[in-house]
């Protein structure tokens, strides 16, 4: 998606009030209603819009046309990195006498114990497995929130009292003002045509 700058006519319309308009929000009561509404918003050609629901609504991704996330690809490579780090760590520390610089100079120690082979790959498997899982899980967790643009302390939507129920039992569609098709009145009329409980303008504070 390309970055869209505000067109002059829209700036004019949104600067009617002193604070800028963030977007137009419509409230729905059931998953079924927001699903039908989302299909219509998508069909109307809006691109900077979102649904806010208290739980993931099955099928809403398709209705909104969200493309699959790239997250698993990163997680795969993170896991692979973990495997290699673990092998390298164990082989270096227990089977070599090399000196390498890893923030400080460290030297391997060929550790002969119970006559076990120095480079004992089967014995290295458990730690390789654990570090694979560890790095994958850390990446999954961290990257999911980063890709979502979280954590963040504030968001314009949090200024709406109505929106408090988005984490409880109500379903919201928000069309952002930066969408090229956004016109304050026209978008409001469009959302009202989707038979919501209410439509509200959200200000960008």
């Amino acid at each position: 998606m390309t970055t869209l700058s505000n067109t002059p006519d829209k700036l004019q319309s949104s600067s009617a009030s002193r604070t800028r308009c963030y977007g137009m929000m419509a409230e729905f009561a059931t998953p079924g209603e927001i699903m039908k509404a989302a299909e219509k918003v998508r069909a109307a050609g809006y691109r900077w819009w979102d649904c806010h629901t208290p739980f993931p609504v099955h099928g809403l991704d398709n209705a909104m046309g969200i493309s699959p996330t790239i997250l698993p690809v990163f997680v795969f490579f993170a896991g692979l990195t973990g495997t290699m780090i673990a092998f390298g760590l164990q082989a270096f520390t227990n089977a070599t006498d090399w000196s390498i610089w890893a923030f400080v100079w460290v030297t391997g120690y060929p550790f002969l114990i119970s006559g076990k082979p120095l480079l004992s790959v089967p014995a290295f498997i458990p730690v390789m497995f654990e570090l694979t899982i560890l790095l994958s899980a850390l990446t999954t967790f961290g990257l999911m929130f980063l890709l979502n643009g979280l954590p963040r302390l504030h968001h314009p939507l949090f200024t709406s009292n109505r929106f408090l129920r988005a984490s409880d039992d109500r379903f919201f569609i928000v069309i952002e003002a930066r969408d090229p098709r956004f016109r304050r009145q026209a978008t409001r009329d469009f959302l009202e045509g989707l038979s919501p409980i209410a439509v509200e303008e959200v200000l960008d504070t």
């Binding site: 806010h52 909104m64 969200i66 899982i133 302390l153 949090f158 988005a166």
Partner: peptide
Amino acid sequence: LGWRGSNRHWHRYERAYLLLAALS
């Protein structure tokens, strides 16, 4: 963390949840 139930977020969240389950 500023969670606001966005469906675009839920999409990645559910995938992450599935991945964490598969890793666990």
